[in-house]
Design a protein around this nucleic acid. Structure first.
Lengths: 207, 207
DNA sequence: GCTTATAACTTAACAATGTTAAAACATTGA
DNA sequence: TCAATGTTTTAACATTGTTAAGTTATAAGC
């Protein structure tokens, strides 16, 4: 009768741990997180952690991948724009950027962790990349659409998607590291970022 | 009479410490570096470190900023190309990327350290940015040259330089995190990266 | 309701980390 | 040789993640 209640209680504490941990991470960064900080915040002894998690890494992984899921969730809503796929790309990635900037510590930890990073998962330059990352998938589809309509220059869509993706990734990290940057500056940078990606810096195409 | 000899000996040990530390970092990453690993490698006791360095951070900073200087040094040689400044840009940044890929751990630690990172120093969007970073400076000058000749679209050179810079930064990190990536793949990505930046993905300029 | 088995939690310790103060040793200059 | 200065070690401290053994609580069976 209490089997489910027991499991629910267990989940509850697990979530409490994650909640407190998330709080610490958002305030002091992922390196400011410690087992004892967590347990003292929930009035338990340090050892208890290992009843709910394998180790500290599992907490961090759980935390950051949840954060990334949240980012991906905020990307789902975008309006189809068949004539100008680049508008769709811009909208999707702008959402992605803003969502990432809302949880910078989680994002950095998730992306830069060699073991988990999406950057690693999306085996670069190999076919079928885009299936693993929804963002890359949509990006790829849009590029193909623009290409099909003769609006974009002929290219390898997956390769191009990777390039746009890494470029945007760099912008995000820059925005996170940079302090004292206003919302207007952020918007202006994003604007210019996509302007370069769509139009390039040159007036006439070469080669 | 031994004042200089003494200083030289001091410098020698300091360098030995840095050398050993660099070795550990290149093998085990910056997080694999520990005071005791260093001192046991040079057959000293842990405490000695603090005779030559303020603390561990100073070692890491010294290490990574040296690594970055080395990267910048490899960028100095490029051939002037007044008709096609983008070729110069491409050459400079390709050198920069390759040099960074040669010391990935140092580069990552240097760039992502909130306290030291160039990303922070180059107060974004403010006038006079480029003076602080030689790479940005040259990049900026090239953009202005291309613009002056009516080869590039009108833009804020400093802003555009920042965009190219962050985009390339993202590419570098991606290349570092991604394992099992061949030299050809790296070259192809770099090629495409600059192709997008120079030409954009669209056939005709919009807006 | 008592007993018992299982789950939840604490305690205390371990090893590894950065760091420091005091002591010991070495070297130099007079 | 002696004192002063510089160099290195020693031993400790506090903080980390982690674990094994013990303790307490909870639930199930009779």
């Amino acid at each position: 009768m209490s089997k489910e209640r027991q499991l629910r209680k267990q989940e509850e504490i697990r979530n409490k741990i994650l909640e407190v941990a998330r709080d610490i991470v958002s305030k002091e960064g992922v390196q400011g997180l410690s087992i004892r900080k967590i347990t003292s915040a929930i009035d338990y002894s340090p050892g208890i952690i290992y009843h709910y998690f394998k180790n500290k890494d599992e907490i961090v992984e759980s935390l950051t991948s949840e954060g990334y899921k949240q980012i991906l969730a905020s990307v789902r809503s975008y309006k189809r724009n068949d004539e100008a796929p680049e508008e769709e790309i811009k909208e999707i990635f702008t959402n992605y950027i803003k969502a990432a900037l809302a949880v910078p510590e989680e994002y950095k930890a998730f992306m830069l962790n060699d073991d988990v990073s999406v950057l690693k998962k999306t085996a670069l330059l190999k076919k079928g990349i885009s299936e693993k990352s929804p963002t890359l998938q949509v990006l790829c589809a849009n590029i193909q659409r623009g290409m099909g309509r003769g609006r974009y220059a002929p290219c390898d869509p997956e390769l191009t998607a990777q390039i746009i993706w890494t470029a945007t990734f760099g912008l995000i990290l820059k925005l996170m590291i940079e302090k004292d940057i206003s919302q207007e500056q952020v918007d202006r940078l994003i604007e210019h970022h996509f302007n370069v990606i769509f139009n390039g810096i040159m007036l006439e195409r070469k080669s």
